[in-house]
């Protein structure tokens, strides 16, 4: 059954975009009311590859947390994959999150489980039958180039390999959007390139990819859309942008 999606109306601009933010404001209570995001408007279409860049404290992490529905905006609308996150009940959040794939800087793998189980875990929570899992997980591990290491535990892999496992886990449920929060932050140059190539390949297969980063080199090299945040405000949004220095 298709998920009940709130917030879409015919002719509404939000319907054309997989991510739609309108006049979004959010402030942390422990920051004396200083806004983390201020009057943010953002539209990301299906199939786009977008970098969100900015210095520490610019609001990048807050934006990712909003898109994951870990935080809710104080005002404005946040619509992701057709779900109006502002009015979403807590019990609907898991279903919404299954429409996303998420990759973190620190990989966040289950350390006590092997690579196969880490990827299979994402399928198990959506109650895929075991025979389907046995087919999908090796396919996904082959895609990220780790088919031969399915029995290894995360700590037996390099940082780059662990991040590829995280990508496989994020993609195994075929999400429409892949959110990557500093995916290369803990990786060396070679592994960074590998991961970015992998994300580009994922994007070519039709998945919308949003990468939060402050890695100037990859942003400048890949020539994708770049949204720059500064002190909670979008200061630039370029179709084939570059990392803007202060």
């Amino acid at each position: 059954m298709a998920p009940k999606k709130k917030g879409r109306e015919k002719g509404d601009d939000s319907a054309k975009n997989v991510i739609y933010l309108e006049n979004v404001n959010i402030a942390y209570s422990d920051a004396n009311g200083v806004p983390a995001l201020m009057n943010v408007n953002l539209k990301i279409k299906k199939g786009e590859f977008v970098f969100i860049v900015g210095d520490s404290g610019s609001g990048k992490s807050t934006l990712i947390k909003l898109l994951l529905r870990e935080l809710t905006a104080d005002s404005g609308r946040v619509i992701v994959n057709g779900y109006d996150l502002g009015s979403m009940r807590h019990s609907k959040v898991p279903k919404f999150r299954r429409s996303l794939g998420v990759v973190f800087q620190d990989f966040r793998l289950l350390k006590d489980r092997n690579i196969y189980d880490n990827v299979a875990f994402a399928q198990r929570i959506i109650m895929r039958p075991e025979r389907e899992i046995r087919k999908n997980v090796p396919t996904m591990l082959s895609l990220v180039g780790l088919a031969g290491k399915y029995k290894a535990k995360p700590k037996q892999l390099s940082g780059g390999e662990q991040q590829r496992v995280a990508v496989a886990r994020a993609l195994v449920n075929r999400p429409t959007i892949l959110l990557a929060d500093e995916p290369t932050g803990n990786l060396d140059y070679r592994n960074t390139n590998d991961i970015m190539k992998l994300l580009e390949k994922v994007n070519e297969n039709g998945t919308t990819v949003v990468v939060v980063t402050h890695n100037r080199d990859i942003v400048n090299e890949m020539q994708k859309r770049v949204i720059t945040l500064k002190q909670g405000v979008i200061v630039s949004d370029e179709k084939k942008g570059a990392y803007i220095d202060d």
């Binding site: 019990s91 898991p94 919404f96 999150r97 996303l100 966040r108 875990f121 994402a122 929570i125």
Partner: peptide, 16 residues
Amino acid sequence: KEEITIMKYIGATDFF
């Protein structure tokens, strides 16, 4: 706690 957080990010229900 981290394990629980990972499960929740992937879309696990509270019950799961």
